[in-house]
Amino acid sequence: MRSKASFGLKISAAVGLLFLHAPLAFVILYAFTTEERSYQFPPPGLTLKWFGVAWSRPDVWNALTLSFQVATVATLIALVLGTLAAGALARTKFFGREVISLLIILPIALPGIITGIALRSAFNLMDLPFSFWTIVVGHATFCVVVVHNNAVARLRRMSPSIIEASYDLGADSFQTFRYVILPNLSTALLAGAMLAFALSFDEVIVTTFTAGQQSTLPIWMLNELVRPRQRPVTNVVAVIVIALTFLPILAAYYLTREEAGASSRA
């Protein structure tokens, strides 16, 4: 059925992929450069000392800790809300269903700046001071869709008769959820949680509007990008961020391999 790809197609596909991947390789390379003042290429020498310098920087640690805490709490909220919404929407038809689906996608379909400024002005109107929790509210809002999409994809793949079989064998709704639905849904939820975590951990646009004086890791990086203080430390932090987002995404992929072909981010 499948013929061979033409040479031109192969070349264009390869160029496309190279374009997607090469830039990150440079970030990794620069973490080892001995050059402090500029982005000189090729690097005049290679060193590991900047990892040590970054390690001893309390501002990096504070930002990293805050990002972890925010991502954890936002993911937990998104996990609950996204799973409930998926349960309601996966196999049902009712009036207004489309509107609710749209509502779930909206926080990532609209530009992040809209979500950010809308939340900021709402917090201002309610005289809520910016805090850890205002960051969490923003992040949880756009993380719901990730959990929801993963859960819906799995629920739709699940044979509806196994739920009926559970009722038939004497299990009530809660037992059915605990013993049948949850075990079959768990890897999809875990994958959704991983992606939500990665999304929150990396988010900068909404966060700048809801963070007040606190710095998450992306905010810290943004400040370094706009007003560089010690470039090599920024390079090292960039590599750490690559590593920290790479792992959950890879894990999420392996947890939902069957669905991978059929679904994308939204």
């Binding site: 044979s159 008769s161 196994i162 009926e164 079989a165 559970s166 038939d168 064998l169 004497g170 299990a171 037992q175 013993y179 049948v180 075990p183 079959n184």
Partner: peptide
């Protein structure tokens, strides 16, 4: 009453024995 489903509706996350004893566990 108990049902034998057209697509069998076996629980994919349980082995054969756990499938069979599901009702008793409940």
């Amino acid at each position: 009453v108990n049902t034998v489903f057209q697509d069998y509706a076996l629980f994919p996350h349980l082995n054969v024995l756990d499938n069979v004893t599901y009702g008793l566990r409940i």
